[in-house]
Design a protein around this nucleic acid. Structure first.
Lengths: 141, 141
DNA sequence: GCTTGACTTGGAGCGCGCTCGAACCCCTAG
DNA sequence: CTAGGGGTTCGAGCGCGCTCCAAGTCAAGC
């Protein structure tokens, strides 16, 4: 598989794939006779995993650490496990934060919805109070 | 309240507070006789709200749009509501993605845990397969 | 009066994660 | 044979969200 097809199949750009190889996130790919990268299907699983780490907010620096441990052999298993566990804990915390924020967001949206309801019958708009700067001279925006 | 105390109470740096004012995320603060910013308690609610938007991944650009709508008066209620609803949907989607990733992470960690268990009795390490580049010549890391 | 330290401004700089441009190479289809 | 569309490398540039520096002002305590 050439880089263009890999790009299509992973959703990454070819530029990004080369960048990932450059920094060491992806292994140095085999080249064909013309010097072009030629990928094996197996790269897809690794990229999918990286994508999950990325989705969960792991910085590249840390993915790199994981990649290097993996490359260093099976003796690094415990360290990799620890790395993933620490990351999982952070993700869980963030997840909880997000859920809390979602509740607040729902409440706020509910307030706007109510204001609109109250406005329709008699053409007034009390508008929900949220803590935004009220009269608000918001400058240089 | 001076900027230093506001910083302590919000967890933002004074630098960041000034930056937010500069770009219009915070209203232009009243100054005392000496030209220093003097904040009212009411700013805290607004900053807390911004913080929630930030936590949920809203880009500053969009927070600004919200802030400008709010400043434009109560007639913009519906537009603000729409903005928050769109954001809420994105957050929900992201939340679902995170949860899916968490499951994968748990599975993977479980694999490492098992490998360690198997290793302890008889000193071998089969190591869980995940799709990482196996023998891995990871370059220029 | 003098020192200390928190504040002011404007603008430069930074870390992250890409993203792109230039110049070149190579394979294939017409 | 030629044109086109991929691919290659190296290195510069970008958008985001701060973060910090320099030089100056001001208020309170010794």
């Amino acid at each position: 598989m050439k880089i263009g097809e890999l790009a299509k199949r992973t959703g990454l750009s070819a530029h990004t794939i080369r960048y990932y190889e450059r920094i060491g996130l992806l292994p140095f790919a085999d080249r064909d006779a013309g010097g072009r990268r030629d990928y094996d299907e197996s790269i897809l699983a690794w990229i999918a995993f990286l994508d999950r780490l990325k989705t969960t907010g792991m910085p590249i620096r840390e993915m790199l650490r994981y990649a290097r441990l993996r490359a260093a052999g099976s003796s690094t298993g415990p360290e990799r496990r620890a790395l993933l566990e620490a990351h999982r804990d952070r993700v869980r915390t963030h997840l909880a934060d997000l859920q809390a924020c979602l509740l607040v967001l729902d409440t706020k949206i509910g307030g706007y919805a109510e204001a609109e309801k109250r406005t329709h019958p008699d053409e007034q708009s009390p508008s929900p109070d949220d803590g935004e700067p009220a009269g608000a001279r918001t400058p240089r925006a």
